[in-house]
Amino acid sequence: MASLALRKVISQVPRNVLYLSTRSLSKNLVDTFSMEHATGLEKKEMMAKAAGNENPFDMRVYKRGPGTKTDPNIIPSAYEERLIGCICEEDATCINWMWLEKGDPKRCECGYWFKLVDAKPL
């Protein structure tokens, strides 16, 4: 290992040590290298973001719609149920939590309707 390390360092010296900054990469190229280097869930996240999806894991707060019985707020989930919390008023200091199940639309404590639908997994 040590000899490999040393060889690696020494072999590079004549070519590069004498002049600084052999090349300056554009942001684009750097991102491409990083994308090619990544794998797994990390790569899926990067690709989603590159495709313009800034919220690939559905982590952000929803702004509710009308939330009537006929036009409920649609909540996506990859599971059969999802824990949701309502901030009923803008400056409320507590969150009203409830479980929402698939095929069973429900009203929250402040009176709005919610419905769980299938989410597209990343």
């Binding site: 390390a5 690696k8 010296v13 590069n16 090349r23």
Partner: peptide, 14 residues
Amino acid sequence: IMENNHPQSLQALF
């Protein structure tokens, strides 16, 4: 490393 300059990153870290 941030500029993907592998030889120099090796030298500097060494």
